[in-house]
């Protein structure tokens, strides 16, 4: 089973606002646990922690400094 790692939909209102991935705290291919902090994104000087939505192996889809929007998939867990 594959679980998407997504930028949450409800953290900010402006649909046009872009965030940047500032940090991956787990490596590509690493085993991660549900709820573990794996990435950080920043928008409007606000740092949002992204946690693993499932147990499994992380595949990073977007790199540090990539631009993302609400709902974007930034990685997968299998």
């Amino acid at each position: 089973m594959v679980t998407d790692v997504k930028v949450p939909q409800d953290l900010w209102q402006d649909d046009g606002m872009e965030a940047v991935i500032t940090n991956w705290l787990a490596s590509d291919g690493a085993n991660v646990r549900n709820g573990a902090l794996i990435a950080e994104i920043m928008v409007e000087k606000s740092q949002f922690e992204i946690t693993a939505p499932a147990d499994g192996v992380l595949t990073i889809g977007k790199q540090v400094d990539d631009i993302v929007r609400k709902g974007d998939v930034i990685g997968k867990i299998t």
């Binding site: 949450p8 953290l11 709820g35 409007e44 000087k45 606000s46 740092q47 949002f48 922690e49 992204i50 946690t51």
Partner: peptide
């Protein structure tokens, strides 16, 4: 989201959100 007075910065702001 700076607080500005007459076009100058008086206060700066930042946040951190943790699920």
């Amino acid at each position: 989201f700076n607080v500005t007075v007459k076009g100058q910065k008086f206060a700066g702001t930042a946040q951190r959100w943790r699920p």
